[in-house]
């Protein structure tokens, strides 16, 4: 477990900054709700019957924004993107850093197998991802509760969203690692993995403003765990959970398979 310890320590400072950022965003977002609620635009009611694309122009999803949880659904996508960026960069970075920092000739002549290196690095990355997710979950529950005086408890949907976000984080992490394992040039892994992540994000934005092309939603993990749908159903869509788990398994498999056979870039 020495590689795990080393990796976790090496990424600790970064993780602390990400966590602070996450915490601040939840705080700032819910503070905005505080101001929003007191303004109380009752006229919002007429929007409930409007089509998606028109609503999007006004920046409103089809949920009651005057409740704390309704407002949190808007905030959630920002937390989601942040966590996704973290996971993608971490996944690609943790496997390519030895080659890019030229420390590969230190680590790999040690009596460890490639499988063991990948496994311990992956474990360190998963730990980071889980910690960031816990920070998001705890701060969301606390701040939403703080602004939710008198409203119905929002803890369950928030935790469900966070479970969904964790699965999506793991998908992005495993895609980042797979890119690092498959691509010959370690410099390409970060850009390729983040290009996918952004395409997925912009695809989600596109799908939010239309009713067409909904089959494309399978391509973007941002749509697997849609905040509004989770609040309405008070449950995760098990189909998407199953897809997430299989994607994670497939990309992890690809990572191990290719990394073992890879000529290191030294």
């Amino acid at each position: 477990m020495n590689i795990f310890r080393h990796e976790f320590r090496a990424h600790r400072t970064g993780l602390i900054w990400w966590s602070v950022g996450m915490l601040f965003m939840v705080y700032a977002g819910m503070a905005k709700y505080g101001g929003f609620k007191s303004a109380g635009p009752a006229a919002l009611d007429i929007f409930k019957s409007l089509p998606k694309s028109v609503l999007a122009v006004f920046g409103i999803g089809n949920i009651d924004l005057t409740t704390a949880i309704g407002f949190f659904t808007v905030l959630f996508i920002y937390l989601f993107v942040m966590a996704a960026i973290h996971a993608t960069l971490l996944g690609a970075g943790i496997l390519t850093e030895e080659e890019l920092e030229r420390t590969a000739e230190f680590l790999y002549p040690k009596p460890v197998s490639r499988v063991c290196v990948v496994a311990e690095k992956a474990l360190a990355a998963v730990t980071s991802v889980i910690i960031l997710n816990l920070v998001a979950a705890v701060s969301s529950v606390v701040f939403v509760a703080a602004y939710n005086k008198g409203g119905p408890t929002a803890t369950k949907p928030i935790l469900l969203m966070m479970v969904g976000m964790l699965l999506a984080q793991l998908i992005f992490l495993s895609i980042g690692m797979a890119a690092a394992a498959v691509l010959n040039n370690p410099k390409a892994a970060g850009p390729v993995a983040s290009a996918y992540m952004f395409t997925a994000f912009f695809l989600k934005l596109g799908l939010d403003i239309t009713e067409k092309y909904q089959w494309l939603r399978f391509l973007t993990p941002f749509r697997y765990y849609d905040a509004v749908a989770i609040v309405k159903a008070s449950a995760l869509d098990w189909g998407y959970v199953a897809i997430s788990v299989s994607l994670i398994a497939v990309f992890t498999g690809i990572t191990f398979y290719f990394y073992r056979r890879r000529d290191l870039y030294v």
Binding site: G21, M25, A28, A31, K32, Y33, L89
Partner: peptide, 22 residues
């Protein structure tokens, strides 16, 4: 990593946009 610096900065500014309450 150029990519990390630039993604974090750009998204940082994007997110600042929604901090109007604070």
């Amino acid at each position: 990593s150029v990519l990390s610096v630039s993604l974090v900065t750009v998204f940082g500014f994007y997110i600042i946009g929604m901090l109007d309450a604070v």
